[in-house]
């Protein structure tokens, strides 16, 4: 089982907890970093964070509605960095009808996940992005 580095970009405490709980139920070796907005997330990726941490995540789980820099802006930036653009990004949002969805998909995301993140349920839907995310984490 490979060690996975995950970056969660999410401003809502409840959603962060929810993702944490979901991940903890998976028997995987992982390291979770949390940023509360796009600016903090970029700082972590570039090593400009206050404590100087620099990470190279395998997977980014991204919320779209955030203060300072929202998910779409963040996506636009990292997809322009050669070193970052191959990171798998899963967008996580409330509604399947968000008008941002088309924009996000055009920016080359890997999957589109509906909140709440529930790996148990996704086992019934092998075509879903949540299932895809679980597969990524498990291999």
């Amino acid at each position: 089982m490979n060690h996975k580095t995950i970056l969660l970009v999410e401003d809502d405490y409840l959603d962060v907890t929810s993702v944490k709980r979901s991940l903890s139920k998976l028997t995987i070796d992982y390291e979770l970093h949390i940023a509360h907005n796009g600016v903090d997330a970029l700082a972590l990726l570039n090593g400009n964070s206050p404590d100087g941490t620099k990470i190279k995540p395998d997977i980014i789980i991204l919320d779209l509605n955030m203060p300072k820099m929202n998910g779409i802006e963040f996506l636009g930036i990292i997809k322009n960095y050669y070193s970052l653009k191959n990171i798998k990004v899963f967008v996580m949002t409330t509604s399947s009808e968000d008008y941002d969805r088309v924009t996000a998909e055009n920016l080359g995301i890997t999957g589109y996940i509906l909140k709440p993140l529930d790996f148990e349920k996704s086992k019934d839907f092998p075509n879903s992005s949540t299932y895809q995310l679980m597969s990524e984490l498990l291999n």
Partner: peptide, 11 residues
């Protein structure tokens, strides 16, 4: 309205 509701449900 759905977001906080989901929060309550989660908690």
């Amino acid at each position: 309205l759905k977001a906080p509701l989901r929060g309550i449900d989660n908690i």
